[in-house]
């Protein structure tokens, strides 16, 4: 049974239909990707799942429960965590505090207990700090817990955001362009990290990604969106050979009218080799 099922989801902004009649499923424990040109509705769909947007039509079911009418915090409580395309850490909190606040739902101490400093609250806080340190280590930020989030280098900020999302013990993790702005080495590292997450914690992962090397390397299923509609879905190999996808990325006949599309071509081509290279560590 799929962990998340979206049926005929539609989201409109005024006259613009950002997500149009989209059906989507993700299997428990898998890694899936959403790709598509800019403005294809990928992030909008994320926002619909995470409760940032109310959808006009359709249904989103997570673990047997419809979630499209729930508030963001309720969705988070069910076990969906996310990161953001443009990193949104709590800039004036330390790395440690960012992760601690991420555990909000799993801590039970009341405010009166906190004021009085009761034993249960101290234990709760102790557990939370241990867990936060474990997560910091897990994402490789062990010495940086006391730094303000805004003072971390870019790559560390991305990893901290993932750690904050993990603090909620999610069953489904939504990663919005986790390798954006990273150099090839860093994004290779991030790819490894994502796979590690799934293998180690069993977290189901859905990511939006532009970097085809990453997408083709780790996804078990890829869904291609174009103008809010699903135009293809399948394994990396299937997607790379799908004529509709190639057309969406290259444009019909013309060699890319917009700058972004032009840059997408080499990325797509590069994956031919990248897919096999990327899959080696997984089998190892």
């Amino acid at each position: 049974m799929p962990l998340l099922t979206a049926t005929a989801v539609t989201k409109k902004f005024g006259g613009l239909t950002a997500v149009n009649n989209l059906d989507f499923e993700i299997e428990q424990g898998s890694i899936a990707s959403l790709i598509g040109p800019n403005g294809a509705g990928k992030t909008t769909f994320f926002n619909c799942i995470a409760g940032f947007y109310q959808i006009e039509a359709g249904q989103i079911v997570f673990d047997g429960q419809p979630i499209q009418r729930l508030r963001r915090d309720q969705i988070a409580h069910l076990g969906i965590s996310r990161t953001y395309q443009n990193i949104r850490l709590f800039a004036n909190m330390t790395a440690m505090e960012n992760i601690l606040v991420g555990q909000h739902y799993h801590l039970r101490s009341s405010w009166i207990g906190a004021v009085l400093g009761t034993k249960s609250v101290r234990e709760d806080e102790g557990r939370a700090h241990r867990e936060a340190r474990r997560l910091l280590r897990f994402v490789g930020l062990q010495n940086k817990g006391d730094l303000l989030a805004s003072n971390l280098p870019y790559g560390d900020q991305r990893r901290l955001e993932v750690a904050r999302a993990l603090a909620n013990k999610p069953r489904l993790l939504l990663l919005d362009e986790p390798t954006a702005g990273m150099n090839p080495a860093e994004s290779q590292q991030m790819t490894e990290f994502i796979r590690h997450l799934r293998d180690e914690l069993g977290t189901t992962i859905l990511l939006i990604e532009h970097e085809m090397r990453v997408v083709m390397g780790i996804s078990e299923k890829i869904t291609v969106l174009h103008y809010g509609q699903k135009i293809a879905e399948g394994t990396p190999i299937q997607i790379q050979t799908d004529p509709l996808v190639i057309e969406a990325y290259l444009g019909r006949g013309s060699a890319g009218t917009a700058g972004h599309e032009a840059t997408a071509i080499p990325a797509l081509e590069a994956t031919q080799g990248g897919a096999s290279a990327g899959s080696t560590p997984a089998s190892a």
Binding site: A50, G51, F52, R71, R72, D73, I75, A76, H77, S81, R82, Y84, R88, F90, A91, N92, M93, E97, L100, V101, G102, H104, Y105, L107, S109, W111, A114, V121, D124, E125, A128, R164, N168
Partner: peptide
């Protein structure tokens, strides 16, 4: 330094993200 205080600061910093993290 408690769960509640961190939630307050999170709300002050970014209300949307704070809610998405599970803060009512």
């Amino acid at each position: 330094a408690s769960r509640l205080g961190r939630a307050w600061i999170a709300i002050r910093e970014d209300e949307d993200v704070a809610e998405a993290i599970g803060i009512n």
